[in-house]
Design a protein around this nucleic acid. Sequence first.
DNA 1: CAAACGATTTTCT
DNA 2: GAAAATCGTTTGG
Length: 214
Amino acid sequence: MVLVLQAGLNCILNMILPNSFYTRTDVVTIARDLPGKFLVTEIHGVRTSGMIVEVEAYAGIKDRASHAYGGRRTKRTEVMFAQGGVAYVYLCYGLHQMFNVVTNVSGVPHAILIRGIEPVEGIDVMLERRKYSVLKPSLTGGPGSLSAALGITTVLTGCQLSGPEIKVEDRGVGFSVEEIVACPRIGVDYAGEDALLAYRFYIRGNRFVSRAKK
DNA sequence: CAAACGATTTTCT
DNA sequence: GAAAATCGTTTGG
C-alpha cells in the first residue's frame, strides 16, 4: 500500500513528459512550455539533473537558422525528421555537444535547443565532469556547458526522451507569462530575417541563462 | 578529395 | 573585448 502510494506520488511529482507533448505541431509553443521542466540523465548509472531555464526553437524547412532549412536531409539531420520525443545531439565548433529536443510529427524536422539548466541532482558529478571546484552559472549555462555537465554526447542522438538515458520531467514547476522572456535567438545572424524571430525563451532573472553577445 | 565553417566556450589582455 | 581551440558536416571542384 505504501509502495503504491509512493509510486503514485512520484508519478504525480515527477511525471515523464508523454510523447504527445513533443508531437504537437507548433514548435514555438512547445519551446515556451519547456522552461521549468527537468532534464534528467543517467549515464553509466550516474544520475544528474537540472531545471531547464533557457531554450530556442528551430522551425525546420522554413527557418533559415535551422539545420533542416529547405528540407536538407543528411546523415546528421536525419534524426530531426523523426517523430517528436527523441534527442538530436550534434557537435559544434568541433568540441561542443549541442542537445536538442526533436518535435512535431514524423517527417517535419522541428527541434528545440536547450541552452541552459539550473543544477538540481548530482551537482558533485557535474562539477567533476566540468573540472570546477565551485558551483557557478557557467557550470550549466550555455548549450555546450550543460551537455558537458550532464554527460550528454552525440552518441545519444536518437535516444527517446522518456528514458532510460535521458528523461524530461514535469515536477509541477510553472512560470507566469511575465516570468518567461521571449527574444531573438543567439548566434544566428546568418539567418537573415529569421534571425529576428522571437524564438528564444528564458526564465527572467535566472542566473543560469546565457548572456547574448554584443 | 579539399576547404570552409559553425545554434560556442575559455582564456588571455 | 579579442582570439584561439578544434573537427565533423557540408559543399564545391
